[in-house]
């Protein structure tokens, strides 16, 4: 059941998160943002500091000789990402936003609504995770099915090889790679996303200033929050590919009803 709460919640969190990111598509390392020579110099404004540049990622549009291009700059190395990042849309109607319309909610730029959606679903995500954790500890799901054991790790090489050969044995228990990825997402990434998200809040930082020390500052927390999002999206893509590879009808039935038809004789026809 919680599976579909996860799916819907993470969908809205990622798409509204990209909407929020688009408001300032630059990531920095540390407590604050070193604007370098990008510092705005308005009338009587404080002086910028060209030397202070702690930018890690910067997605923007740039005017080149051949026209405007979308640029993704990682640690000062520029990549042309026209069509996807920095500039998207059609030639007649270019859209200058970091992540394209199809990846954000709302599709047009609307930071206010992006934040409203993000925080609403954050209030769903946190209780869902807590309920999942408590239930999984109590009923043993966490220990039996998710946390990889030593005996699992011994099966790891064979498991990797069979995945690489695109062979997916249908078993009712999770295989090692599955266990490792589920454990990483549910026990590391999701709580990490919650905590780095909280670190970006000035209200929470006043209550729990230690969060700033744990994550190395508000801007580092924002950077880690973004990286966590990438991991979740990667997990989603692999998850979908695996479900399709393992036979979508059977998998969907098990996700909805808990009833999975395995190949191993003792498990065949077994209900959960």
């Amino acid at each position: 059941m919680t599976h579909w709460v996860w799916a819907v919640t993470l969908f809205f969190m990622v798409t509204s998160g990209l909407q929020i990111f688009n408001a300032h598509p630059i990531l920095y390392l540390g407590q604050q943002s070193g604007f370098g020579d990008k510092q705005y110099l308005g009338p009587q404004a404080g002086h910028g500091n060209k030397q202070f540049n702690n930018t890690i990622l910067d997605i923007h549009a740039e005017r080149h000789e051949g026209g405007i291009v979308g640029v993704t700059s990682i640690l000062g190395h520029d990549f042309d990402t026209t069509g996807l990042l920095g500039m998207s849309g059609s030639k007649d109607q270019p859209i200058y936003q970091a992540f394209p319309e199809w990846a954000t909610i709302p599709s047009y730029f609307d930071l206010a609504t992006g934040r409203v959606i993000h925080f609403f679903f954050a209030w769903i995500l946190v209780p869902t995770w807590c309920v999942w954790l408590c239930a999984s500890v109590i009923n043993g799901h966490l220990w039996h099915d998710i946390v990889p054991k030593l005996s699992d790790l011994r099966l790891l090489p064979g498991d990797i090889i069979s995945h690489l050969r695109l062979e997916f044995p249908r078993k009712r228990s999770y295989n090692v790679l599955q266990k490792l990825s589920y454990a990483a997402i549910l026990i590391l990434v999701i709580p990490g996303m919650i905590l780095t998200g909280l670190t970006m809040s000035p209200g929470v930082d006043s209550a729990w200033p230690w969060l700033l020390d744990v994550f190395g500052g508000r801007q580092t927390a924002r950077l880690l929050h973004f990286c966590g999002m990438l991991v979740i999206v990667l997990f989603f893509v692999v998850h979908i590919v695996m479900v399709i590879a393992a036979g979508p009808i059977n998998e969907m039935r098990s996700m909805i009803t808990g009833w999975y038809r395995g190949d191993d004789p003792e498990a065949a026809g077994g209900g959960a």
């Binding site: 604050q32 308005g42 404004a45 404080g46 202070f52 929470v204 006043s206 700033l212």
Partner: peptide
């Protein structure tokens, strides 16, 4: 609820001031 009566925002040392305060919104 988690803040308590007077939650203090972190105050930084002078060395943390690395650049002018970036203005935003109305500037003139």
């Amino acid at each position: 609820a988690i803040q308590g009566p007077a939650p203090m925002a972190r105050e930084y040392p002078a060395s943390a001031i690395r650049e002018g305060q970036r203005p935003n919104g109305s500037t003139d």
